[in-house]
Amino acid sequence: MIQHYFLIIISTVLVNNIVLVKILGLCPFMGVSKKLETSISMSAATAFVLTIGSMTSWAINHYLLEPNDLIYLRTISFIVVIAGVVQFTEMLMEKNFPLLYQVLGIFLPLITTNCAVLGIPLLNAQSSQTLIESALFGFGGAIGFSIVLILFASLRERLDGAEIPTAFKGTAVALVTASIMSLAFMGFAGLDR
């Protein structure tokens, strides 16, 4: 059992990393990775939303949609729930970490439209797992997202001092870097067997 949970974590964090392998959630991945500090806060916020979101979505799916034969409502109801969770997180941050709130700016409400946040509950629901599994799935995805975002931010900070050709400055070189990271993560292929 423990081995099974361990494999879920390995699979979601490394092998099927949400950003680098599933290519979901690229918007905050590109947008909030210019500075290490903000990327850490952003990954914390996203991790929070992802974990809570997966669990609530699981509950809605399991207790509300499936018994009533309303599976076609999955996407829309998940969007509603996630929007609610994000709104809640936003208020929580504005009160308790006002500076962080300002720094994250538009990216905080944009967690709502982060496809990773919607993608994980949907993938989750399709493989119809237990609550613990779906929580682990969400959490693993969040950890994978966080690790990659923080590492990417640290790489981009290093690039601030590099003399990158004008044509590649900014997002271009960031995308090249992201693709090389993705390439490197392919090395983990097969670890979840």
Binding site: R158, L159, A162, P165, V173, T177
Partner: peptide
């Protein structure tokens, strides 16, 4: 190498 600026700047 050269996308990153050439000698001394490559990350990988």
């Amino acid at each position: 190498k050269h996308v990153y600026g050439g000698l001394g700047y490559n990350l990988f």
